[in-house]
Design a protein around this nucleic acid. Structure first.
Lengths: 129, 129
DNA sequence: ATATGTGCAAAACTTTTGCAATCTG
DNA sequence: CAGATTGCAAAAGTTTTGCACATAT
């Protein structure tokens, strides 16, 4: 059995993610973590994030040519995203505001683990400029 | 006014995308383009793909730590995707098989240009192994 | 003509990894 | 202790860019 250990580095990564609603990327998490634990390396942050994604505690949000951003999944706060193509801002959209999406017409035998819904567009602030 | 020119390189990129249902990445498009036009560079392929994405003729599909893949949007073949986390295969899911998704509860003034829906999971072939 | 597009190669980034040293359970 | 984890630095991989030359309009 693989054993997962609790380390201060991982605790710090989780703490940073929990404290932020900005969907930070790995470098931003790293910077924040370093404020508490200056010696933590970026590699360690990546390894911690990978583990959290694997555990389902965090969801990655990808965009072309940009660093992956990480979304902490809070209990009872399941949500989708609205992504601004201009400034990159990511807004949460509660799942409760979208009708349930049936898994119909998928390839036979395809096992869904996660449904990602993203509204791509232009945020109010960017639309104004 | 900026003028967009038609070149054989871009025509070849479009041709490759139209001919494929495999959602190729930039390197794969490049390889295919080179079969016809051996001198085309990878940089040119990236520039062509960027332009097509900007025009809305192609949709990028991102995955953590993997190359962006490109989806040619055929007239009357609007679709979402089912992505296998294990082998990376991407399956098309017709939009007609999913109920319309209301743009409710988005940030006030957010202008939606595109709705992306991805079913993440394990494909039948990978589930078997 | 002239501004856009191309090829090449180098640079910029993001993410992953090998390894010796350190920790956790 | 044994094995998981870390820091460091190098490597791998993807995407972007500067520049001189070619080309579409």
């Amino acid at each position: 059995m693989t054993m997962v250990r609790q380390t201060k580095q991982r605790a710090a990564v989780i703490e940073v993610l929990q404290a932020s609603r900005a969907h930070p990327d790995a470098a931003q998490v790293h910077a924040q973590v370093r404020e508490k634990l200056p010696s933590v390396s970026l590699g360690t942050v990546y390894r911690a994030l990978d583990a959290l994604v694997r555990d389902g505690m965090v969801t990655p949000i990808e965009r072309v040519g940009q660093a992956t951003r990480y979304d902490y999944r809070r209990e009872g706060d399941d949500h989708h995203h609205a992504v601004c193509r201009t400034c990159g801002a990511i807004f949460d959209v509660p799942v409760s505001s979208v009708p349930p999406i049936p898994h119909a017409h998928l390839p036979a035998g395809f096992q869904v683990t996660d449904v990602r819904l993203e509204f791509m567009g232009v945020c109010p602030s960017c639309a104004r400029n």
